[in-house]
């Protein structure tokens, strides 16, 4: 009885990672691509804002 339960558990454990891998590889991964694409786009724009702010700060220091 115990051996059968162990065998069944092993089968389930062996099958579970396969399903998880399929989900990660086939469905979830593109979500990361979309997230990174939007995040990088706005981070680059934010970088320009910081660049402009630094130039303005340098002007303030130089002007005072």
């Amino acid at each position: 009885m115990l051996a059968r339960m162990l065998a069944a558990a092993l089968v389930l454990l062996a099958a579970a990672p396969l399903d998880a891998a399929q989900v990660v590889g086939g469905t979830l991964r593109p979500y990361w691509h979309v997230f990174i694409a939007y995040a990088v786009a706005w981070l680059v724009v934010l970088g320009w804002v910081v660049h402009i702010a630094r130039r303005l700060g340098r002007l303030d220091r130089g002007g005072n």
């Binding site: 691509h33 979309v34 990174i36 694409a37 939007y38 990088v40 786009a41 680059v44 724009v45 970088g47 320009w48």
Partner: peptide, 14 residues
Amino acid sequence: MVFFTAALIAGPLW
């Protein structure tokens, strides 16, 4: 440069 860099990163991700 800012916006085209964003496009050049987003495109390859797709």
